[in-house]
């Protein structure tokens, strides 16, 4: 079965709705990002605001990947969210869409590495590792992280991983556990084809 044929209208709407729900929830925390940036800027540590919160922005990917359990779900979960954010006139526009694609590839890679067969703690951990590495590589290029001194660079990488681990791992697992207990996972309520 080709990947595109495993996508049905209902799964697509579900995926888009989840990205939008997450987008709306993240919208609530954007003042937090501004405040963190303002606090950290005098010490020249502004990028840490981004590192602390990146897990929140990368969360739609693992949740979608874990819930729908079909290839490309994690990527689309991230990417659709970014595309919608751009269309609704987010100030970051073009970079939103590119960042969404990069984060999507990062999240997806974790699921790809398990061959879309195992869905457990390990998968989420792996996805947190891949999304950290891929997005960090991108920030080295785009935001010039490469010119930081090594200790600070490692600090940024560590904080980014912890953020992705907490939101994409711990919190995502807690969410799917709740869904599991409500018996909406894998019982036909979630469209798994």
């Amino acid at each position: 079965m080709s990947h595109s044929s495993s996508w049905h209208l209902r799964s697509i709407i579900l995926l888009a709705l989840i990205s939008l729900f997450f987008g709306v929830i993240f919208w609530v925390i954007s003042p937090l990002y501004d405040v963190l940036t303002a606090i950290l800027t005098p010490m020249g540590l502004a990028p840490f605001a981004n590192e602390i919160l990146i897990g929140v922005w990368c969360m739609a990917g693992p949740v979608a990947g874990y819930l729908l359990r079909i290839p490309v779900a994690a990527f689309l979960g991230e990417f659709i969210g970014a595309a919608v954010e751009m269309l609704l006139g987010s100030q970051w526009g073009a970079s939103d869409l590119i960042a969404g694609a990069i984060q999507g590839v990062g999240s997806e890679l974790g699921f790809t590495l398990t061959g879309y067969k195992r869905y457990n703690w390990g998968t989420l951990l792996l996805s947190a590792v891949t999304v950290t590495l891929v997005t960090f590589g991108w920030d080295m290029i785009k935001n010039g992280y490469g010119s930081y001194h090594l200790p600070l660079l490692l600090g940024l990488l560590a904080v980014r991983f912890l953020s992705n681990f907490f939101f994409g791992g711990v919190l995502t697992k807690a969410i799917v556990n709740l869904l599991d207990r409500a018996h909406v996972l894998g019982t036909g309520a979630t469209p798994q084809n």
């Binding site: 799964s11 579900l14 709705l17 989840i18 729900f21 929830i25 819930l67 979630t190």
Partner: peptide, 22 residues
């Protein structure tokens, strides 16, 4: 925004709405 219940309820709504819309 770190409460799993918030996302859980949002996903429940998404499951229901996607079914209805499709």
């Amino acid at each position: 925004f770190w409460s799993p219940v918030l996302y859980f309820k949002a996903i429940l709504a998404a499951l229901k709405w996607s079914e209805n819309t499709a």
